[in-house]
Nucleic acid binder design. Structure first.
Lengths: 243, 243
DNA sequence: TGTACATCAGTGAACGCGCGTTCACTGATGTAC
DNA sequence: TGTACATCAGTGAACGCGCGTTCACTGATGTAC
């Protein structure tokens, strides 16, 4: 029924995809601010007004790209988080695997990464459609920690009393089954993880850091510890004793 | 001698400053990608070609704004780092003070922050002039940790063997007087700190985190611990025992 | 199966806009004698 | 102090460009009888 509805519908799906692909190419070449409907149409051999059959405006095309990007990185994170799923797996390893998967996706798609985790596009405000896809990576991180908690493999971190109400609120919203201290630490960890990726991608590590993957893995491992994940081995080598 | 050289020179300095101020205003209104020489000139009651007496091109104006922004946040960080300077001060407190100062500057100047710590402006490559100013915040953080180290108030963190060569290289480049493990942790901490600020500023915390300053302070305190700074009190409240 | 009509993808011209940069110029400010 | 010349900030017109969006249109694809 809804599978194949005829040439018209199939053509529409294909052309829509072609427009998004070409737009992604231009994103990679010029950045989001310079993404232009006319240039996309030109490259596809269409006339610019034809695109309006597919996207009512430039902003809607941007929104579609943003949703796709969130979904792409979310999928990659979910796949990495699923490997060796369940409580038998070493959770510190899964945590690192998810972080590394996100980083690798970002390195492979720097402009799509910038689109969703960089400075907001001026004059553009993300509509409601983006919030679901935007949360996928976060949910994977929560999932890893939840599994560790269920397996009693979590050392609940200390919680600053001043942060207690906010931590309780965050936990109620995001993961009622986890200790508030863990959820608060998770939210911070989430931001810190993307901070490492953004600094690498946006050039702040240029002429400073060389062994970027190693530094990343090490830092991610430490961040994992900050949310309570117990000692695993860092894949690049052995650990010394902790503080 | 070099102080006052006549009306022409003074006028030049004033007009240059006025151009940068107006450009900063437009940055705040529209973002870096849409910064336009013509709009700046228009707002100043000049003709667009007149700006070429002051900046040889749009990119040079952008560079000047970038340098100014790095200098502004660097100055703020240095001031916060200098308060209670020397080894008698509680270094964890200074660490937090520097981080909070940077965050507050960022909240007050979101577009200037985005200009230097957000996604790179497409088609623009930062010239050499920016590297000095760009390193000021990092140097302040190194300074705080160095003072702690001199006062023997530093718990040198464990170093993953796989990271040892990179850590040694980083230490040689950035702070030969500090243990390599500390320098590697510092570089990661630097990125993580800005990750927290960027997530807040770029909207990732919208509808998620409410008590942002508290979460920030807490996370910064933990990051300070990850580089080896010893227990201080978090200004917002008391700490529980560590892991 | 065949015809009449509806749908809709794509066209091409046009609207009105803003941009960075160049160039020959005017006229005020500064300098040397 | 006064004159001749050099410097240089700012003008105004122009160049060539690209943009998002609208609109009346053509012609192919799909639908109902």
């Amino acid at each position: 029924m809804s599978t194949i509805r005829g040439a018209r519908e199939r053509a529409r799906i294909e052309v829509t995809a072609a427009i998004k692909d070409e737009a992604r190419k231009q994103l990679a070449a010029e950045g989001a601010a310079k993404l232009s409907l006319r240039a996309v149409a030109r490259e596809l051999g269409m006339v610019s007004s034809a695109l309006y059959r597919y996207f009512p405006s430039r902003d809607d095309l941007l929104t579609a790209l943003i949703v796709d990007a969130y979904d792409a990185v979310g999928e990659v994170a979910e796949a990495a988080g699923a490997k060796g799923d369940g409580r038998s797996a070493p959770d510190a390893g899964r945590w690192t695997a998810v972080a590394c998967a996100v980083r690798e996706w970002a390195l492979a798609h720097p402009h799509e990464y910038a689109l969703i985790y960089g400075s907001p596009v001026p004059g553009y405000t993300a509509p409601q459609d983006t919030v679901g896809p935007a949360s996928r990576v976060g949910l994977v991180l929560i999932g890893v920690v939840r599994d560790a908690h269920r397996a009693e493999g979590l050392a609940v971190p200390a919680l600053d009393p001043g942060l207690r109400p906010e931590a309780a609120r965050l936990a109620a919203d995001l993961a009622p089954d986890l200790p508030p201290a863990v959820v608060a630490a998770l939210v911070a960890a989430w931001a810190q993880l993307f901070g490492l990726i953004s600094f690498e991608l946006f050039g702040q590590f240029n002429r400073v850091v060389e062994a970027r993957e190693q530094l990343f893995r090490h830092a991610v491992h430490e961040i994992g510890r900050s949310v309570g994940l117990l000692e695993g081995r860092v894949p690049t080598g052995a650990d010394g004793p902790g503080a």
